[in-house]
Each structure stands twice: as structure tokens, then as C-alpha cells.
Design a protein around this nucleic acid. Structure first.
Lengths: 196, 196
DNA sequence: ATGTCGCATTAACATTTGTTAAGTTGTTAA
DNA sequence: TTAACAACTTAACAAATGTTAATGCGACAT
């Protein structure tokens, strides 16, 4: 896809994040690419070294870990307007700790983390974008850590209904269970208990 | 305590974090203060609005949440050379989600988050310090989230022995149990099973 | 219409983890 | 030395959660 198309597609997001100044951002913009994915397509494989992040234009992806017993556990879900990818791995040059796969057909603009990081050195708008991105992920992880550490299965489900009710409608229940760290059968049981 | 003392005490840490340039850092440095705490002293109360972070010079503190059932669960431990405090709360101007209390007599240099954040606007060294601080906390939260989401009690304990063996020696076992999200009695039982 | 497939539900049972209580040990202070 | 206290251990039991299997249900393709 031609650069002009990407420029047109990235523009509204830059505006949304108050990025007006594009100086020193050439490398970042030039290495962007747009791609459409089908459900179950994988954007990042756990264990691989990836420096690529994704700005989702449409669709829905999930990030998931593999447990020591070989089961999947969903770390997070992301949809249109959000940036996701193996950020911690990119920062530390480590292999990605989780896999990213599509739950729905998804369109995403990908870019290289190092290009963004490099651009932040001389571009204050992008430095701010980077800080906001990190802060957002940081706070998300912390709240989730708190929930996993302090809540039982029922409380986790209540938390989800209160904080991310749209997720419950949009993704399959066994994926919700995996997100909460409980078995799909246990979640179903909880729901039926709640009904009585 | 006089500023000159603080300057002398903060200097080695600034050097350690490669902060050479102190331009635009006056407010940050001026609002610093040093204090000694006893075991069980509280630095930050959950629920209070705090903009203060702490650079620990000695000792050991724990951060803990309160569960919906009213029990304590340890989020993290920090010791000399580390910066801690309600970072996410400071970023979002929210009440602190956890309490910070001393497990050992502790000396700490406190400073205001907003002063550091403000200084990052024109001081690249401090901007880098801020990024490193956030990245560090971010990665710590993510690894912990992964452990809590994917591991059972035995696997969590193994993880701890592998990743933070010194903690096991330094803090009481019931605090370790709280850190792992299991009951103190359950952890004791696990250990005795492992012995056989 | 029918078969297939994936997901949700339900039930019975197994395992893990929490709870309570009692006993032990080590430390500290009188 | 003794008393008091807190942490750890152990055991018995309760509750929560995982596992397996059977059933149902709806979407979708043939």
C-alpha cells in the first residue's frame, strides 16, 4: 500500500493524540504499513523477538500467555483506536511473552517501536504520545494485577461487568473466563448461581 | 534537615541514574526531604491523594492492597536504591490504591511527582529517569500479572524462589504468602509437601 | 431438512485452596 | 528463668475451583 494511503489513515489518529509536529518522524512514518487480518490470524508469536507495534483501525485482538500446564490465558483485549504489541519486550529487547491473535477481522497500521522511540528524542509531541502509551499500559497492568491478587472468581466477574461490560457482549464466554483466570466451566457455574 | 545534606545524599543516586544535568530541577530538589521511619510506619495510606514518591536509602517497605473481604495482599516490596510510591495515582490524580508501610527501619528521600514531571519538560536526563522509572514499574507489573494469571500456588512459589530468592530470606513467610496471593497456612503446607 | 461444529450448560466427582484450631518454636522483656 | 507474644507448623474439615463427560443449542454449510 502506498505511503499516501498510510498518511491519510494515520492522520486522524495523530490528531486524536495531539501530535501536530511531525519533525524527526520520517523513519517512523516511512516504516509504517497497513494490513488486514482474518479471525485467528496471529500478529505476534510468543517467544519471537518483535519490535513491531500495532495501531488497530478496526476489529478485535487478544493477547494471551501460555501457562506452565500448556493452557492459554488471555492477558488483554484491544480494539479500534488502541495501540498494542509486545511493548515490554521491545523496551528490553526480549522475546515477546505473549501471543497476539485476532478474534475478529482486523485492520492495523504497524510501525517499528525503535522508530517511535528514536523520534521521541527530538519531537515533544511524540515523546508525549510515548509517555501516554506507557502510562496507559502501566495503569492497565496495575489494575489487573490488583484484581488478580485480591479477588476471587465471583469478584473478578463482578469487576469485569462493572469495568468492561462491552467485552462481555463482544467476546466468547470461554475467552472471558480465560481473561479472569478461571475455567470456562467455573464461570458458567458462577453465572447460574447468580441467577438464583 | 538542611538542603546541603539532601544534595549530598541525592548526588550518588543521580550519578547512578546518569543524571548529570540539573537544569530546571530546582523545584524538584528544593521540595525533597529526608526522613527516617520505624518498622510499621506508614508512608502512604490507601485512599489518600498523594503526590509524593520515595527514594529508599535503606530499609524495606511493602505495598499492599486490601481485598473486598478486608484482608491485606502485598503488591510489592522495595528496598535501598529503588524509587517507589503511588505512581499510577500521581499520574491520574487518583487516590492511592495501596498502602505503603515499612517492614524494617527505613530511610527515604521524598519528592513531589509533579516536580519531577515538570522538570522532564526541559531536562533530558530527568526525562530519561522518568521513562526508566515508568518502564521499570511497567515491566514489574506485567511479569507479576502474568504470574498471577498463569500459575497456581506451587508454581508461584517456585517462581518466587527463582526470581526473588533474597525476598524469601528477608521477609516473614506470611508476607510472602500474601505476596503470592495464597493463605499463609497454604504456603506452609506447600513447603512441607515439597520436602517429601 | 440435515449434519456438523463450536460453545454453553449442567452434573458428578477430584483436587486445590481456605479456615479454624491446637501445638510448637523462637524471641523479647520483665 | 519465666511469661508473653508472634510466627510457623500441622491436622481436620469446609469451601472454592478444576476436570470430565454428557447434553443442548444455535450457526452454518451441504
Amino acid at each position: 500500500m502506498a505511503d499516501t494511503d498510510i498518511n491519510a489513515r494515520i492522520a486522524p489518529w495523530l490528531k486524536h493524540w495531539s501530535v501536530d509536529d511531525l519533525s524527526h518522524a520520517q523513519a517512523w512514518l516511512e516504516h509504517m504499513s497497513v494490513k488486514a487480518y482474518r479471525a485467528d490470524d496471529v500478529l505476534v508469536h510468543a517467544g519471537e523477538h518483535s519490535d513491531t507495534l500495532y495501531l488497530l483501525e478496526s476489529g478485535l485482538v487478544r493477547l494471551f500467555y501460555i501457562t506452565p500446564d500448556g493452557k492459554e490465558r488471555n492477558k488483554a483485549f484491544f480494539s479500534a483506536g488502541q495501540i498494542t504489541g509486545p511493548v515490554s519486550a521491545a523496551i528490553t529487547s526480549s522475546p515477546a511473552p505473549f501471543t497476539i491473535a485476532c478474534l475478529e477481522p482486523t485492520e492495523a497500521i504497524s510501525f517499528r517501536f525503535r522508530d517511535l522511540l528514536h523520534a521521541t528524542r527530538h519531537n515533544q509531541d511524540l515523546a508525549q504520545l510515548y509517555r501516554d502509551m506507557l502510562a496507559d499500559a502501566f495503569i492497565r497492568n496495575e489494575q489487573r494485577e490488583a484484581m488478580l491478587l485480591t479477588c476471587n472468581a465471583q469478584q473478578r466477574y463482578d469487576w469485569l461487568l462493572a469495568h468492561e461490560p462491552n467485552l462481555v457482549e463482544r467476546v466468547a464466554q470461554f475467552h472471558i473466563a480465560s481473561y479472569l483466570g478461571v475455567d470456562a466451566v467455573s464461570l458458567s457455574r458462577l453465572k447460574s448461581k447468580n441467577r438464583q
